[in-house]
Computed example of a mutant assay.
Amino acid sequence: MRLQLIRNATLRLTYAGCTLLIDPYLAPRHSLPTIGGHEPNPTSELPVPAEAVLEGVDLTLISHLHPDHFDPLAQQLLPSSMPILCQGVDVEALRRLGFTNVTPLEASWQGLGLLIERTPGTHGSGHVLPLMGEVMGFVLRAAGEPTVYWAGDTILTPAVLETTMRVQPEVIVTHSGGALWDGLPIIMDAEQTVAVCQAAPQATVVATHLEAVDHAATSRRALREAATAAGISPTQLRIPADGESLIFAAPGSPA
């Protein structure tokens, strides 16, 4: 498997002979409104041309419709016939945008040699949680590939830990930027990401959703410092730069 972090939560995965695109956020730097009142978004530039992000994509997964996961430029550039997996609550909105091949990911989906299982997410807590709406993560499996748990926009909850224990993934992708809404975290921060590493010592944790939106409070440096202080090695917790690719061998294969 080849995992390329584009920016924020946007990934390109080369997996079982397919190219998967996750949560495309393609806007130029500072072209969208501020969220946290600090600066316009995105706060970083796209590391490759937007058209290159979409090149050769076989399937797009959209976890929810917040603009830092599917922004207006992505909506414009993504081909209308692109196969899309999404939450059931988002199907009609995507069809109204002109997309014609939209499938809800309910419990699971199978195709292209892949098995994708929906997992729960909790996008905040307290009075903020209903404002954030429904979100999802997923587990990705295929013959000869590492099992991937993409946790999505969620804080650390018992459900996340239960999924980790049940699935025993080789790779866990976390959203670790510590984004805040009305002072409450809506995704994982450094402390919660370290807790995931500690709960899943068999897995490589890939921390994303960092340094791209202005309401995120956790930097890559702060996350690395917290992990080092907790004894988490750089080989277990990977913190890719925007545009960086990571390669993961199939289970049982030489690294």
Results as ranks from 00 to 15, higher is better:
Trp109Glu: 04
Gly111Val: 08
Leu112Ala: 06
Leu112Cys: 05
Leu112Gly: 01
Leu112Lys: 02
Gly113Ile: 05
Gly113His: 04
Leu114Thr: 02
Leu115Phe: 08
Glu117Trp: 03
Glu117Ala: 05
Thr119Asp: 01
Thr119Lys: 03
Pro120Ser: 13
Gly121Thr: 00
His123Asn: 13
Gly126Met: 09
His127Asp: 14
Val128Leu: 10
Val128Gly: 03
Val128His: 06
Val128Pro: 01
Pro130His: 14
Pro130Trp: 14
Leu131Ile: 09
Met132Pro: 02
Met132Tyr: 03
Met132Leu: 11
Glu134Met: 07
Glu134Leu: 07
Glu134Tyr: 12
Met136Asn: 11
Met136Lys: 02
Gly137Glu: 00
Phe138His: 04
Leu140Ser: 01
Arg141Asp: 10
Ala142Lys: 05
Gly144His: 10
Gly144Ile: 04
Glu145Pro: 11
Pro146Gln: 06
Thr147Phe: 07
Thr147Arg: 08
Val148Leu: 11
Tyr149Ile: 02
Tyr149Ala: 07
Trp150Gly: 02
Ala151Lys: 01
Ala151Met: 14
Ala151Gln: 08
Ala151Val: 14
Asp153Val: 06
Thr154Asp: 01
Ile155Asp: 02
Leu156His: 01
Thr157Tyr: 10
Thr157Lys: 08
Pro158Trp: 05
Ala159Glu: 13
Ala159Ser: 12
Leu161Trp: 04
Leu161Ser: 07
Glu162Met: 14
Glu162Lys: 13
Thr163Trp: 00
Thr163Lys: 00
Thr164Tyr: 03
Thr164Asp: 03
Arg166Tyr: 11
Pro169His: 04
Pro169Ala: 11
Glu170Arg: 12
Glu170Ile: 10
Ile172Gln: 03
Ile172Gly: 00
Val173Met: 00
Thr174Cys: 10
His175Lys: 12
His175Leu: 13
Gly177His: 04
Gly177Asn: 12
Gly178Met: 12
Gly178Asn: 06
Ala179Cys: 14
Ala179Gln: 05
Leu180Asn: 11
Leu180Gln: 15
Trp181Arg: 15
Asp182Glu: 15
Gly183Lys: 13
Gly183Asn: 14
Pro185Lys: 06
Pro185Phe: 04
Pro185Trp: 01
Ile186Ser: 02
Ile186Cys: 08
Ile187His: 03
Met188Leu: 07
Ala190Ser: 12
Glu191Ala: 15
Glu191Leu: 15
Thr193Ile: 14
Val194Phe: 11
Val194Pro: 00
Gln198Phe: 13
Ala200Gln: 02
Pro201Gly: 09
Pro201Met: 09
Pro201Ser: 11
Gln202Cys: 13
Gln202Lys: 15
Ala203Glu: 01
Ala203Asn: 04
Ala203Val: 08
Thr204Pro: 03
Thr204Gly: 10
Thr204Ala: 11
Val206Leu: 05
Val206Met: 01
Ala207Phe: 02
Thr208Val: 10
Thr208Pro: 05
Leu210Glu: 02
Leu210Ala: 06
Glu211Lys: 03
Val213Tyr: 03
His215Lys: 14
Ala216Gly: 07
Thr218Gly: 04
Ser219Val: 11
Ser219Arg: 10
Arg220Ser: 12
Arg220Asp: 07
Arg220Cys: 12
Ala222Ile: 14
Ala222Trp: 10
Arg224Glu: 13
Glu225Arg: 13
Glu225Cys: 12
Ala226Asn: 10
Ala226Ile: 11
Ala226Trp: 03
Ala226Thr: 08
Ala226Val: 09
Ala227Glu: 02
